[in-house]
């Protein structure tokens, strides 16, 4: 964990309200960890999963959902931003030979970085990327180069007609461990589908580094903080509210 001043190198729109931001000034994050970025005029820092890293530049993806992210979308290259980096506990992927990667919506961010790590180790993972609709599909070209990519959309406007979990039930995919990130209903579905994997959770956070207990979730071994013990948990550990 570090407090650093990062510099916006690039900030561009990928789809309707989805943006990619690349920032310099930080060291290589572990896949699955996140960083928090201060936005001028807003009290709390915003947490984002590290979605890639090369040559000292970290990539994040974000959706404009409110005034804070709206302001972020307008930041020009060269903007300095205070950040807390290297937050949380990432994926355990060292021993995985046959990974399955599953994402829902912007949950694609941290697992895209994980896919790149696998590819760098000579492993081409199966990657099931779910989106709501064709206009929200992002990163297709990048991922097709390094993964066996399967796109799904809830409305069938691109790829498989249905969500990522439905796709897995319809298709027999062999894997020794899966890595999933997305909205809670999808993660619940993944846990029901198999416990042989890891779930990356999202939560509204106060601090982002374990002090406020604002993001605690129930697990089989007691409550854990998404920001500190997570955001990545063993699928079998997480207890979802009914």
């Amino acid at each position: 964990m570090k407090k650093e001043i990062l510099t916006v190198e690039e900030n561009r729109r990928l789809a309707a309200d989805i943006f990619e931001m690349r920032l310099s000034g930080t060291s290589r994050p572990e896949p699955g960890t996140f960083l928090e970025i201060a936005v001028d005029g807003f009290f709390l820092k915003r947490p984002f999963g590290a979605a890639g890293w090369s040559d000292g530049i970290v990539t994040i993806y974000y959706r404009v959902v409110g005034a804070g992210t709206e302001k972020m979308a307008a930041l020009p290259a060269g903007t300095k931003a205070e950040a807390l980096t290297g937050l949380g506990h990432g994926f355990d992927f060292g021993g995985t030979k046959k990974p399955l990667i599953v994402s829902g919506g912007l949950g694609i961010a941290p697992v895209k970085y994980l896919a790149e790590e696998f590819y760098a180790r000579g492993i081409k993972p199966v990657f099931v990327a779910g989106f709501r609709t064709a206009s929200e599909v992002i990163l297709r070209d990048e991922l097709e180069k390094i993964c066996d990519l399967r796109i799904t959309t809830d409305d069938g406007s691109a790829g498989y007609n249905g969500n990522a979990v439905m796709y897995l039930k319809d298709n027999d995919i062999s894997f020794d461990r899966y890595y999933a990130c997305g909205p809670v209903p999808m993660l619940k579905g993944m846990k029901a589908y198999s416990e042989k994997g890891e779930l990356s959770l999202e939560a509204r956070m106060g601090c982002g580094f374990g002090a406020c207990m604002g993001c605690s979730v129930k697990t089989r071994s007691g409550y854990k903080r998404v920001c500190r013990e997570g955001p990545v948990f063993e699928a079998g550990e997480v207890i979802f509210d009914a």
């Binding site: 009290f43 709390l44 106060g206 406020c212 605690s216």
Partner: peptide
């Protein structure tokens, strides 16, 4: 355990 999530909301000069 405490309360269900979300437990945090941002405000202009605090939380």
């Amino acid at each position: 355990y405490g309360n269900p999530l979300p437990r945090i909301a941002e405000c202009p000069a605090g939380m």
